[in-house]
């Protein structure tokens, strides 16, 4: 075990030495890897932000229940009781007189309302459910329609459903793009390691002849690939964090113009860790492929 750990330490040292040994080439490789990782990760973060923004908008999503004109005080009490017991969230009752008064107070409506022979507006409830998922809202609205003395239930969730569908497609497209770019990263590392192997072909040959196992040969290259990928992941996290920071102000102003409030969030430390780990894993994989191919070709 001690020997195994010592060999891993030596391989890591060797990989770090190689990284430091060719700074310009490695910086360029890191940039490529960083950008390759930035694209899907930034896309995921953007979708996450959009999802949260939609969640905020959906948070004020309302369901309106309009009662039959013949609904009486007792019927209203029954609905209040049902809302209290079955619907988590907030709700308020708007009496038909109150609704007419509001309409009357609206600019330009006073004369029209005054000309009406009777109040045409129904009693209504406005509900803001705690669960704002499109499916839940739809189910709730369906349940309200079955309640007695309910004439009409209005739920304007179509746009949320459309947006939800858009998010699903965007996530799928981003997953495909992420897969392609991950393959590209593996290919980039594969090629980088292949060039290193060619440069050290003599050393590899000698080491094998005097008793080095394939694992011993592979190890420094795999560490190199993993380190390069990990540094690329860190760079991608940094790029996304800087981008989020620069965009958060303008996005906040834009949302404010539409009367909302939304703060763009950058990558969390967990996101950065995940991105670093993904970069390391892909780099390791590319290096492992590259060395395995070389060793297979060179084995008599």
């Amino acid at each position: 075990m001690r020997i195994w750990l010592a060999q891993h330490r030596a391989a890591l040292r060797d990989a770090l030495r190689r990284l430091a040994g060719a700074p310009l080439g490695n910086i360029l490789s890191l940039l490529v890897i960083g950008i390759v990782l930035t694209l899907p990760a930034a896309g995921w973060l953007a979708l996450d932000n959009l999802g949260k923004a939609v969640g905020n908008a959906a948070g004020s999503q309302q369901i309106s229940i309009f009662l039959n004109p013949d609904a009486e005080r007792r019927d209203i009490g029954e609905i209040e009781s049902r809302l209290r017991t079955t619907v988590p969230g907030q709700w308020r009752f708007i009496a038909r007189e109150t609704a007419l008064k509001r309409l009357q107070d609206t600019e330009g409506m006073a004369e029209i309302v005054a000309s009406l022979p009777r109040n045409p507006l129904p009693d209504a409830f406005v509900i803001e459910p705690a669960d704002t998922r499109p499916d839940s809202l739809e189910t709730l609205a369906g349940a309200f329609r079955e309640w007695p003395k309910v004439a009409h239930v209005q739920l304007d969730s179509a746009w949320i459903k459309r947006f939800d569908a858009f998010l699903r497609i965007a996530r799928l497209a981003l997953s495909l793009l992420g897969g392609l770019l991950a393959a590209a990263l593996v290919a980039v590392t594969f090629n980088t390691i292949r060039l290193q192997i060619l440069a050290q072909a003599d050393e590899i040959e000698v080491a094998r002849l005097i008793g080095a196992t394939d694992a011993f040969i592979r190890r420094p290259f795999q560490y190199y690939g993993a380190l390069q990928g990990a540094f690329g992941g860190l760079l991608a996290s940094l790029l996304i964090a800087v981008g989020s920071h620069l965009l958060s102000g303008p996005v906040g102003e834009l949302v404010a113009l539409y009367g909302g409030s939304f703060a763009l969030h950058g990558p969390s430390s967990r996101d950065a860790l995940l991105l670093t780990a993904a970069g390391a894993a892909l780099g390791w994989l590319g290096a492992a492929f590259s060395v395995a191919l070389h060793l297979r070709r060179e084995t008599p």
């Binding site: 005097i210 008793g211 011993f216």
Partner: peptide, 11 residues
């Protein structure tokens, strides 16, 4: 030192 590194002897 290469053969000794291969067998994992401390530096």
């Amino acid at each position: 030192m290469l053969p000794l590194a291969i067998v994992g002897l401390p530096h």
